[in-house]
Simulated assay, not measured.
Amino acid sequence: MRPRDRGAAGRANRHRGEVEAVIDGERRILCLTLGSLAELETAFAADSLMGLARRFSVGGLKAEDLIVLLGAGLRGGGNLVSDEDVAGMSVEGGLGGLARLVGDLLSAAFGSDAAEAPTGTDP
């Protein structure tokens, strides 16, 4: 569960879709890379990237969804973690910090519409 060297010491590059967060007391870089987006397509049974973006823009994410999203973002940022590891991690700022982090991650990958997902409600 150790982040890659650049992720631990470097700064997030928003132009590459990276976001930075303090998770379990460590500064980490998260990024939804092409590989992690493919991972999310499979996890959420989306038929395309557009389908995945639509899925996130409607809101109503469950805790398990947040674990999958954070895990994909951490792995995309070079952090060697499993979803089981992510389930036990704490994000600086608690639940509000987690919602902001997931919103920032989705916004960096898809634009601002998808960032509303963590705070949305079930339709």
Score class of each variant (00 low, 15 high):
residue 1 M to A: 14
residue 1 M to G: 13
residue 4 R to Q: 12
residue 5 D to Q: 12
residue 6 R to W: 12
residue 6 R to E: 12
residue 8 A to S: 09
residue 8 A to Y: 11
residue 9 A to D: 07
residue 10 G to T: 03
residue 11 R to C: 12
residue 12 A to P: 00
residue 12 A to H: 01
residue 13 N to D: 14
residue 14 R to A: 15
residue 14 R to D: 06
residue 15 H to M: 12
residue 16 R to S: 10
residue 16 R to G: 06
residue 18 E to F: 07
residue 22 V to G: 00
residue 24 D to M: 08
residue 26 E to T: 08
residue 28 R to C: 07
residue 28 R to Q: 12
residue 30 L to Y: 05
residue 31 C to S: 08
residue 31 C to G: 01
residue 35 G to I: 03
residue 37 L to H: 03
residue 40 L to D: 07
residue 41 E to P: 07
residue 41 E to F: 02
residue 41 E to R: 15
residue 42 T to Y: 11
residue 42 T to M: 11
residue 43 A to L: 04
residue 48 S to P: 04
residue 49 L to D: 06
residue 49 L to S: 08
residue 50 M to Q: 13
residue 51 G to N: 14
residue 54 R to D: 12
residue 55 R to T: 07
residue 55 R to V: 02
residue 56 F to E: 05
residue 57 S to C: 10
residue 58 V to C: 08
residue 59 G to S: 06
residue 59 G to C: 03
residue 61 L to F: 09
residue 61 L to K: 06
residue 65 D to P: 00
residue 67 I to L: 05
residue 69 L to E: 04
residue 70 L to T: 11
residue 71 G to Q: 02
residue 72 A to I: 08
residue 74 L to R: 09
residue 75 R to S: 08
residue 75 R to M: 11
residue 75 R to A: 10
residue 76 G to P: 00
residue 76 G to Y: 04
residue 78 G to E: 10
residue 78 G to H: 11
residue 79 N to A: 12
residue 84 E to R: 13
residue 85 D to N: 10
residue 85 D to V: 09
residue 87 A to K: 09
residue 87 A to C: 00
residue 88 G to C: 02
residue 88 G to Q: 09
residue 89 M to N: 01
residue 90 S to L: 11
residue 91 V to N: 05
residue 94 G to H: 03
residue 96 G to N: 10
residue 98 L to N: 04
residue 100 R to H: 12
residue 106 L to H: 01
residue 107 S to Q: 13
residue 107 S to V: 09
residue 109 A to P: 01
residue 109 A to W: 00
residue 113 D to L: 15
residue 113 D to P: 00
residue 114 A to C: 01
residue 115 A to D: 07
residue 115 A to I: 08
residue 116 E to D: 06
residue 116 E to W: 09
residue 117 A to H: 08
residue 120 G to M: 08
residue 122 D to F: 15
residue 123 P to H: 10
